[in-house]
Design a protein around this nucleic acid. Structure first.
Lengths: 232, 232, 232, 232
DNA sequence: TAATAATCGAGACGGTACGTCGCGTCTTCTG
DNA sequence: CAGAAGACGCGACGTACCGTCTCGATTATTA
């Protein structure tokens, strides 16, 4: 989501759709009590096209201006040309579906230059900035973000798998900075990390039209590193 | 949301929305609380008790653990002992109602000590922290925030009346700091203001369980004022 | 209603609107417990224009094709430019209003020639036929008739004041016929009266588009008087 | 209503309505009870139990004294334990539902003795008399009748499928009577048929409490056959 | 002349029903 | 057996009227 750092969608991402293959673990739809799962499944196998069709339908709806609250399962099924039961067989509901959609869109983490703490932080912030600006995903993600606030279970899951790892990366960068002497050793690094990422979240979430010019990451990083009080 | 202010809307923001005015169409009646209009209103005046009953019902439902998505107009009306039409006569829908509810709950702005920039900033942050923690308003506000993201008109209104004034106050504090020499004169104060408020927003919105201990405002302020890089 | 014999609406009826004056007895609106009713009423007297405006509004609505089921009190009040409470002050509800409207439209009974039973019966039937055909009142009355079936109290009242008196007249004609030898003395005259009026009701109510040519009354009367079986 | 037949619709009636066909728009599904259409219907078939449950609920409500005006779709659904949408899926509204209900209750036509015109006519009238008296159907049908008056489309349909066939039978009996010499050959048989059925309609519809004793059909038939004027 | 009292238009009020839509489950037929 | 189709019970949606009530304004009679 907007605050998590990511990659520009116009950048190296090969395919904007769902990733190849059906790499899904939490298949809650299989009727419990069936036999061992390693054997070759009997009956008609699940169509590979369904996930793609469903995700495409959701993205198409959201991009065409439909508010996320109006994106009902019924409508997704109609748009995708898919039966409702087929959707419920794979996901437990709209929220579950959306989480997976978001995860599938999430770009891979950026490579850091490692030249200095300052450069690494700017790079992380720049990725977040590009994520927040990305044309198509921006509104979508903001909507999702809003939606998920109301669904704690899914929010937790997203937090665990997306937000927290990136937070870790920022802290690791700072820890390296402490080791090299670039960062004061007497600071709570979790708090410092929030100092860097908070402003970007604020402008992305609360002020979608605000200034997010390319030099924003550098200005934030430099100001925090140097401090606001005049130096003697 | 309430605990963060942002950027000035007259600043670099190109267009604050389709129409900056108060385009509140569905509420054709007088907004309750305003003075007497010119013409003497005809017909039975609206009961003063309805707003109270409705707001109380919503708060009661949310406090009793009902998720905001399940707080339907129907249920509000039932709980408040009020007709649905009476609700729709005053508000255009659930979101509109919630915006007004939040506004009615909004506490008055804090008095600033004025002893120093640092003290004033800590006070502002402390005020925001308490707002985010307040028992009843916390979950409510977080949900509200989510809801409003999808409704630009309401969001604009809330931004104008709640967020923007507070943002102004922060910037004024910083300007005074520049005048007294407590703050570097070469900084973009809007950005600096976001540095202070961003972290609090981040922890409140993204990490509801995170550390929001009483010393958080002071730690944020001191770290940003002093800077992260070691001083020579 | 359509089966009750009456007068042609294009005939001697002087004014199609409500009769002059406010000759209303069943005024249920007066608050019980007030003083003696002969004394001059205090307060503002009821406007004479209200009954007229309300009746006109109802007729206007029905004539403009609005089904009677859609003629709500609300709509009547709106159309008449009258307050709802003003209507309820005079009538207990829609049914009550409609009964009075119908009564006010009901034309006076016809004069009978008295030359013979056959001529009198034809005259009665002819009045019924014209009533059923009357351009504006026809659909209106059919609607009312339908409506009243579902409201026993009002139906009873209408029956007592409109239907039954006319039924009496038919029987009186037949009794005179028995006295003059024009009618068999061994017959149940109530049943005979129904033989004459039934066919007209049938064609008016069940078959609005059916044959109601001017000679219908004569054909009915002559056939029943002569009998269907061939005379020896 | 059911106890009266009327005139042939192909006769002098100029236009039976806007469209003589079966313009039943809202019921897009197969009318239950018809044979298999060409294409094998897809999706879950409509439950057979729903019609029964709904009809039973309506009859139960009416029998327990609920006025038909208070029999709302909402209440029917509640009583039948059925969703509102399920009702609207089959019928376009209350009237449509009631028409089908009445049709389903309609008893089969009587066998005629064929011994004489007089006996056949008495039998037809007796059948109608019993229909009008039947415990459960009586009030229901009277109300139905009232409802349908205001809905031409439904009335047409009922007329076509219920009233008209019965009317035909009566005229056939009379035609046979002309052939056997039991009936005068110079009469308009449609009118004669109305002479017989009209009185029964009159007493059933206009005078629910009137005399409908078992000998009523015979008295009507005999009086009309013999004529009211004394025979020389 | 002023007070009193009932009327007027207007419209808010707590309800009930409307007809539609989406929910998540189910039941059919086709591949 | 998967999948499209769609019926099912349920419940919320936003609207329309119901009949009652409360307003300010109007219009008579009574003091």
């Amino acid at each position: 989501m907007p605050l998590a750092d990511g990659e520009t969608p116009e950048g190296p991402r090969p395919a904007p759709g769902p990733a190849s293959g059906t790499t899904r673990a939490p298949d809650s739809g299989r009727p419990p009590g069936s036999g061992p799962c390693d054997g070759p499944r009997r009956g008609r196998p699940r169509s590979e096209g369904v996930e793609r069709a469903v995700f495409d339908a959701v993205v198409e709806l959201l991009e065409s201006g439909v508010p996320l609250g109006d994106v009902s399962i019924e409508r997704i099924a109609r748009t995708a040309g898919v039966g409702k039961a087929t959707i419920y067989r794979r996901w437990s509901g709209k929220e579950d579906l959306l989480v997976e959609l978001v995860r599938s869109i999430e770009p891979p983490d950026p490579e850091l230059p490692g030249t200095s703490v300052r450069d690494d932080l700017v790079m992380l912030l720049e990725f977040m900035r590009r994520r927040g600006l990305a044309k198509r995903t921006s509104a979508l993600l903001r909507n999702m973000f809003a939606q998920m606030q109301a669904h704690p279970r899914l929010w937790d899951q997203y937090h665990r798998t997306v937000i927290e790892p990136r937070r870790r990366r920022g802290i690791e960068v700072l820890e390296r900075g402490v080791a090299t002497g670039e960062v004061r050793a007497d600071l709570d690094l979790e708090l410092v990390n929030d100092l860097f990422t908070g402003p970007l979240l604020l402008r992305t979430v609360l002020m979608p039209d605000a200034d997010l010019s390319p030099d924003f990451p550098a200005r934030v990083a430099d100001t925090i590193l140097a401090g606001v009080r005049p130096r003697p």
